[in-house]
Nucleic acid binder design. Sequence first.
DNA 1: ATCGTCAATAATGTCGACAATCTAGCCACG
DNA 2: CGTGGCTAGATTGTCGACATTATTGACGAT
Lengths: 221, 221
Amino acid sequence: MTVKRRDAYHLLREAIVSGQFHPNERLVEAAVAERIRVGRTAVRAALVRLDQEGLVTLEKNRGARVRHISDREALEIEEVRAALEGMLARRAAERIKLEVLRELHQVISAMRDRVEHGDAAGYSELNATFHQHIWTAADHPTAARLAGGLKSQAIRFQYQTAMRPGRAQRSLVEHEAIYGALKAHDADGAEEAMRTHLAEVLETLRWAIDTQHRSSRWLPG
Amino acid sequence: MTVKRRDAYHLLREAIVSGQFHPNERLVEAAVAERIRVGRTAVRAALVRLDQEGLVTLEKNRGARVRHISDREALEIEEVRAALEGMLARRAAERIKLEVLRELHQVISAMRDRVEHGDAAGYSELNATFHQHIWTAADHPTAARLAGGLKSQAIRFQYQTAMRPGRAQRSLVEHEAIYGALKAHDADGAEEAMRTHLAEVLETLRWAIDTQHRSSRWLPG
DNA sequence: ATCGTCAATAATGTCGACAATCTAGCCACG
DNA sequence: CGTGGCTAGATTGTCGACATTATTGACGAT
């Protein structure tokens, strides 16, 4: 884990991704500035970055809002992520070092632990580190930057994909498959495993979207 | 073509992409502000966006520079582009409309014309429109946005690849192959054709980088 | 001659004030 | 009762001033 950043951008980003601001909520500069204890100037800069990143929409003279990620866009993002991470997994398999493999092994053990204890939040965090380790091993800054910039975190929060019963168990198996391919330096296998994993994620997302629609139809408002 | 924007961001972006500022050149806020006739505030905002976009590097308390794209990064960019555009070509094949197909046909005709007349610049421009038509047909804004961002970085070195003898002719053949697959609504074929096309581009880029190094070794300075 | 210190300079970061712009609510009018 | 315009308030956009931070070059000690 990198150091905790204290600048407005990272603070605000964290706040949005973790759901402290709701989709479509207005972000009034003065209010936000007071909330995270920084000047309005810094908030403005942060908003520009977040707009470029797609987490916020910025309309001239009309302020900023937390960007609502549509169902369609969520699916698109996961699709792109699959393409990018597939490529990254392939490269990682070709050049991964023993040390990183060991770290991945530890992450998987910890994941297994979280699954047994039903700790969804902890699992989700480990999931992120697992993928980050692969990015490191892939040694492909450009693709890693793009993949990191995707708003998959926000999606997971918005749609609560981790809540699908039994998802964690199957996700664990998929991660183990990826690990196996990486350990064997099997490029094709790694890309394949990663793609099927993300295809499953996409499927889960479709399910989450569907159930969300169903429930909101029964409980309008 | 969209309307000509006059805000600092687009002006500065255009200036950088069109090579009016050289790689690694320092972008002093005051100087830039005067150059493009806007306030320093606007320049600051523009720099933040361009930094997020990857066209500029922004170091705290040390100002902004035009981002230098290393040989390695140039290759990485093409690699990612191949992954994204491959996906886009696949989707395009599945849903392309007759009208767009006709437009693509016209573009190809025009390309053939440019090749015969040895008009490299014109060909390059048509190349861009060809790909953009495919993005439109793919109807995948997220991927298109990412690919577009990469493209703007790529422009700065792409001109080198057009210089390889006989490249344009072969490029034309590759584009025809892509068109054929799209016309047949052959998803696999389209992705495959696009990937081989971009693999060729990557190979040409390697060649360009290599010859560049050789010549600079014989003619130092 | 080399290194380190320090002042001078240039550039960035931040703040407050004010102007430009949008929004909500009120009121007159049909 | 609905519609349209208008004013008051809230919010964003821009500017200039100043504080903070890097960089450069001169100078002196070793």
